[in-house]
Design a binder for these strands. Sequence first.
DNA 1: AGGTCCCGCCAAGGT
DNA 2: ACCTTGGCGGGACCT
Length: 384
Amino acid sequence: MSDLPPENPNLPLTSSSSSLHHSYSRKQKSLGLLCTNFLALYNRHGIETIGLDDAASKLGVERRRIYDIVNVLESVGVLTKRAKNQYTWKGFSAIPAALKELQEEGAKDTFHRFYTNENVKVSDDEDDEEESSSQPLSSSQTDTSKPGSLDPSKIDNRREKSLGLLTQNFIKLFVCSEARIISLDEAAKLLLGDAHNTSIMRTKVRRLYDIANVLSSMNLIEKTHTLDSRKPAFKWLGYNGEPTFTLSSDLMQAESTKRVFGTDLTNVSVKRSRTHENATERRIKMKQHAIADSSYNQSSDDAHESRRYEFGPFEPAAGGTYPAARLEDNSKRAFDVENLVSDYRPSYQNQVLKDLFAHYMDAWKSWYSEVTQKNPLPDTSKRH
DNA sequence: AGGTCCCGCCAAGGT
DNA sequence: ACCTTGGCGGGACCT
């Protein structure tokens, strides 16, 4: 026994009708959907502590999956680890602060890299972080063999590759640049360092999908594709307020149900799906729910992006460290763009990132000066 | 024919 | 020694 049973007819859920034909569906077990249910379950008043086992059983999945979710949620501040098997629910309201921190952090270690020894060597992957004493780990990790010998070079190698860190770096990509849309492989390359090794690349991309799925279910990003190349890409939506979750009664009652292998409570209320209709629908819903913010405006709404990238309205927030431009107040921004740009120029070591950044900066500068001059209406329809 | 990404093995980390 | 975490990648499923 090992193959999945077609399905379990004992389940009390079956979202009413509409289950055209039920059969094992991968989608119904997706991380994204699971995350949606997870959020539906815990994103409410009264919740304060979350037990991994509790979550696993309530959602009908193995703990392993919960770790995936929890790790990325923690990256955006929604959760905090309290103790073994225990997390503290912080809620969506904790997101803005977390994002801001990521933004600053990103800008900071960018400076650091810039001032210290910017023009760096090959430097495969990894990034310092915390203390940096100890030896600068053995150059590249071309550790051929070394049977048995404990490699001191891979001490916290694990942390470096963690889903959580990867998530944060992924988010920094958006938050620390003006990029609004980043294609999947750009992201993979950026987050990697070695875009040559196909194997490593593949793995990284798999992870990216995992991350993207949960971030998507939170409505922080959205999967799309680049306008031109048709390549899959991620669009940063940012935090616009809490998504409106509707906990299906099915899920509620599923709480008491015991899980059997192969059955999956996750497939309740299969309303998530990534069909365009639903996705758009959800966003609209969310938007009106949080539209109060306003300052977020016009433009680039759903349907049409005018190009591969967009400039996001990321608020620098009091004493912010990053230049954020918005169409509205362009008039009062008379400072020297050039200067500012160089000040904030990240110094990533890998070429791809550098190129990408240059690309965005170029676009941004021309757009910015255009807007700044006097044009009340920035016409983004020109090439470059 | 890829693009997605579920699933769970099994190795680090903790206690 | 046992339990918790969670990297990793085979290969099934979905365009």
